[in-house]
Design a protein around this nucleic acid. Structure first.
Lengths: 265, 265
DNA sequence: CCTAAAAGTCCGATTATCGGTCAAATAAGC
DNA sequence: GCTTATTTGACCGATAATCGGACTTTTAGG
């Protein structure tokens, strides 16, 4: 997994720092578990214990994790970095205002998402989110990640990939089905992504979770490529499909256009 | 600065991974500047250009930063890590509810802060925050950092340090004065910290910013040591000092006690 | 067009990193 | 309470990953 990233790059670029990659990989294990021992982290990261112990020792010295006995946990050190992104990235900076506005106008939860570029293109990370009532079983926050192939935001982002990247991603198919409606084959997904690309928006209906209906549109950067996606999530029994395409879609498109403009700065 | 951290640790522990430390140090430069070139980052981090170029190359491969031409900027990769802390740390998880409640009851901005353990004990990071109207010139978010010696939250945290850590910190004195009232000498600070420790709360009045008055109390963990601080920030011309100690203080203490309990889990 | 600064490339030296091993400690199972 | 199974912590020689300076190319500025 880690080696793949390195090797894919025209075969082991000498500029690639394995130690740095490993250390960050170890940090990442805390996304799945709040407290970890050395061997647990080693198992999860798929690295030798000694290497993981070195990483955790270093991360502790630097103040990124804290040790209580032999168990490690995260320190707040990530928060300033997350804030740096939140205020430095034009889309993230203006995004909260925009999703709040959409939520207020339409009365449904609205989210701005981007690729979590750490995991190829398989995951999207929620950057900004405005909630109404909780409609999804898994709680979402800024920083939550969701699979890209089965969510409207994710599909919009996938539809903006170039052929090489898209093929690389689809090579991972088939994908697990969350519901009976989930598209899981590379063929079906590719067809859907093509349609999304031409029509300019994506709609998923109960593919990630039964009863969850969602529509998303792309947010483009100055070069015209898809930099983010903004979506509206509703309950199937509350909003009809044509409400999404007739009422929600124009609002989302306006919001996306507005965000697009701000990303030029 | 980086070497100090390493050497202070009983002279270059072989477990310390310099490459990992450097990579994280390079990441940190983005806290000061949203976009950076290699040489800018090298200058800020105080590292050779070639080393920084390797770090940025690696961080880009891993998806933590993105390159646009020769300038780099952060990707949303930090958000999942920040969220992992926010939901995994007991104080952070319950903190938002608590500061919101205090803000609602007292009508003033309330914040929960912890040491930013990356920079010795010189900075505190705001973990949770509930705002009223903007009363401070510099906007604060979750993830914002402020100097510990001149803020009420910071002083509470400092008052919980052991002698060794405190002496190490005070050795950096004198500290810059933000206003004419700022305590800047090690002597004065030490005296104030002792008083804070015995009385159980800290009050700063216009030391960080003129017209800003703030009171803070400690939040302790299971072992009884200070794990966080919670404070209320007011404008000098709106709230008298005795309102802070008579009305605000009990509320803060109740909130802190409540948080303390949740940290046991 | 010329100058200065930054970026990109390369490479030999060195040392930081590696990962397996072993003893000690801890936890689990009986 | 004893045995067994993991886990931790420390060690160390081998090796490859990292280092940083030097050079060339490119970009930016006057």
């Amino acid at each position: 997994m880690l080696e793949k990233v390195k090797e894919n790059l025209s075969g082991a670029d000498p500029r690639f720092m394995t130690s740095l990659a490993r250390g960050l990989e170890v940090l990442r294990t805390f996304e799945n578990r709040t407290t970890l021992t050395v061997s647990q982290a080693a198992k999860m990261a798929g690295l030798p214990r000694s290497a993981v112990a070195r990483c955790l020792f270093t991360l502790e010295q630097l103040g990124y994790v804290a040790a209580t006995g032999t168990t490690y946990s995260l320190r707040p050190a990530m928060l300033p970095l997350a804030r740096a992104f939140a205020v430095g990235n034009p889309l993230a900076r203006d995004g909260q205002r925009v999703v709040d506005a959409v939520r207020d106008r339409l009365g449904e939860s609205c989210s701005l998402a981007m690729f979590d570029s750490r995991s190829g293109h398989s995951q999207v990370v929620y950057v900004c989110r405005a909630e109404t009532a909780r409609i999804i079983s898994v709680p979402l926050f800024s920083g939550s990640t969701l699979p890209s192939y089965s969510t409207s935001n994710g599909r919009v982002l996938l539809s903006g990939l170039n052929d090489v990247a898209l093929n690389a991603f689809l090579a991972m198919a088939p994908f697990p089905a969350y519901t009976s409606k989930t598209l899981t084959s590379a063929h079906a997904l590719r067809a859907e992504l093509v349609r999304i690309q031409t029509q300019g928006w994506a709609l998923t209906d109960g593919e990630f979770e039964a009863g969850l209906r969602s529509i998303a549109v792309p947010v483009c950067d100055a070069s015209g490529s898809v930099a983010a996606a903004i979506n509206l999530a509703t309950q199937s029994n509350q909003r009809q499909l044509d409400w999404l395409t007739n009422t929600a879609l124009p609002e989302l498109q306006a919001a996306a256009a507005h965000l697009s403009r701000s990303s030029f700065r």
